[in-house]
Simulated assay, not measured.
Amino acid sequence: MFNNVTIVGVGLISGSFAIALKDKGFAKHIIGVSRTRESEQKALELGLIDEALPLNEAIKKSDFIYVAIPVDATIPVVKDILDQINETQIVADAGSTKQALCNAIQNHPMRHRFVATHPMWGTEYSGPEAATRQAFTGRSCVICEKQLSDIDAVQKIEHIYTTLGMHLVYMQPDAHDVHAAYVSHISHITSFALANTVLEKEKEEDAIFDLAGGGFESTVRLAKSNPAMWAPIFMQNRENVLDVLNEHIVQLRKFKACLEKENYDYLKELMENANKIKRILH
């Protein structure tokens, strides 16, 4: 479908996306753009990209430009790309927040060549080495403000994601950010907080290593995530994250009060209510 595709950022999401584009025959040649020479070299060695170029040179050569970098950097970079593209090129992003970006480019004359997307997949690892095959299969991908993008651009992006095995969901940017706070962002904050709690109270690293079973490991796994990526997400989605965080604190206080007052009937009730999540997450 595309002769030349540029991925801006050569990490987990973009690297996995590049592998998938090649595997499915969507891209003949992939250009990588990165802030560091080290990342570019690693991506070349791993075969994620075919060449590394500065952004301006990569844009000139590309049919499709895919931006997967921290969300605070995404806004100026997408604006820069839109300033340079023509009417046949397509731009898409993979950011975990959507409203700030969509607001920032809403009046740009080339907004119609941009498709705002969020493939709902990730791991706690980062960098080119973290890229994997089959990363997106069975996951959801949110597309925002579809009506503001050209039909041909949207259709091509939709075709890519569905061919990768993704389920498409359509939302406005503000709704996306609310729901992402509830099902993604709070999970990361909770994981970071739990890791800090254990590190604060348990001073014996051997005990953490030896006794941390599957439950702790799966709950705290996200605490390994890259702060350079997650701090900007929390900042951009601050109001929604604060809202869900306040509710989470309320729920924690309920468990605390049950134990303080030895109210084990209500403790059991709280857990039984939580079990209802099984209906949704099979």
Results as ranks from 00 to 15, higher is better:
4 N>K: 12
210 D>G: 04
257 A>W: 08
247 E>H: 14
97 T>W: 01
66 Y>Q: 11
139 R>H: 15
73 A>Y: 11
187 S>N: 09
150 D>P: 04
158 E>I: 13
68 A>N: 09
43 A>R: 01
90 I>E: 02
140 S>K: 12
161 Y>V: 08
96 S>M: 07
103 N>Q: 12
67 V>Y: 00
24 K>P: 00
189 I>T: 04
244 V>S: 03
197 T>C: 09
223 A>R: 00
43 A>C: 08
103 N>V: 03
26 F>Y: 15
239 E>Y: 02
189 I>L: 15
180 A>Q: 02
69 I>V: 15
16 S>T: 06
261 K>D: 14
236 Q>A: 06
13 I>A: 05
196 N>A: 14
114 F>I: 05
271 M>P: 06
152 D>H: 09
19 I>E: 04
128 P>V: 11
271 M>T: 13
70 P>W: 05
36 T>M: 08
282 H>R: 10
113 R>Y: 03
189 I>E: 02
212 A>M: 15
259 L>C: 13
196 N>H: 13
248 H>V: 00
131 A>D: 06
227 P>L: 09
206 D>R: 07
87 E>C: 07
166 M>D: 00
169 V>E: 01
88 T>L: 06
200 E>Y: 06
42 K>R: 15
122 G>T: 01
100 A>D: 10
33 V>H: 01
221 R>N: 04
256 K>G: 07
282 H>Q: 12
101 L>K: 00
242 L>V: 10
245 L>R: 02
224 K>S: 13
168 L>C: 02
190 T>Q: 11
270 L>C: 07
52 A>M: 08
171 M>W: 09
160 I>C: 12
194 L>V: 07
126 S>D: 12
272 E>F: 11
96 S>A: 14
142 V>E: 00
128 P>N: 08
115 V>R: 04
254 K>L: 13
269 E>Q: 14
115 V>C: 03
212 A>I: 00
184 S>H: 04
112 H>Y: 11
46 L>Y: 08
61 K>Y: 04
15 G>R: 09
118 H>Q: 02
95 G>L: 04
134 Q>R: 11
240 N>T: 04
91 V>L: 11
204 E>P: 03
163 T>H: 09
3 N>R: 13
140 S>F: 13
122 G>N: 02
117 T>P: 02
